[in-house]
């Protein structure tokens, strides 16, 4: 077996197939921002504390600063805030954050939204405690979190209403 200095990878990034040839130890955060031009994931601390670079890897929230190309096999689905923005859930979360005053400087918000979306994928009726736990790995230095937590709860209610309306529409 020979050690490799470059790896070829094909990932599904925000629903699109992307082919890359990168150093195996290159951070996913650098690949997203510098190689793929996706600037939504932010570098805050660079050591997994702040959550500003949170993305979903096969549906699981991970920090892109502590993930390298070598760890991500071919065919992996990666969702960033740019991809979330194109979904119904993303638009509902965005609206809840904006109308709820959950955004101040905005630096942490892409990571917050990805972590919130990951929660809602697995828990359609989260309690306030569930939301606080799901966002515990995302730091915000502006808001004090209260409106962020309220916004996620509001988005969950809104999503459930939307789903109910849709299923009633199908029955009718």
């Amino acid at each position: 077996m020979k050690a490799v200095a470059r790896v070829r990878r094909t990932w599904i990034v925000n629903g699109e197939e992307r082919k890359l040839s990168v150093a195996p130890m290159r951070r996913l955060l650098d690949i997203l921002r510098a190689d793929l031009g996706l600037y939504g994931a932010k570098e805050g601390c660079g050591e997994g504390e702040c959550g500003a670079c949170t993305v979903l890897i096969n549906g699981e929230p991970r920090v892109a600063c502590l993930t390298v190309a070598a760890q991500i096999p071919d065919g992996t689905e990666i969702l960033t805030i740019e991809g979330l923005a194109d979904t119904a859930e993303g638009r509902i979360l965005q609206e809840a954050f904006v109308s709820g005053g959950a955004v101040q400087c905005g630096f942490c918000i892409p990571g917050m939204l990805m972590a919130a979306y990951a929660l809602l994928l697995n828990n359609s009726e989260p309690s306030e405690e569930d939301v606080r736990r799901a966002l515990a790995g995302n730091l915000c230095r502006c808001t004090g979190y209260v409106n962020i937590v309220k916004a996620v709860l509001a988005a969950a209610r809104r999503l459930n209403e939307t789903h109910r309306a849709e299923s009633q529409g199908e029955q009718a």
Partner: peptide, 24 residues
């Protein structure tokens, strides 16, 4: 290297020099 939550912090911050060879 497996999850990397300790090692990648050390290597990227320069606390520990990154290894020549990583077995993933």
């Amino acid at each position: 290297l497996c999850g990397g939550t300790d090692l990648l912090v050390q290597w990227h911050s320069g606390v520990t020099a990154p290894p020549e060879t990583v077995i993933v």
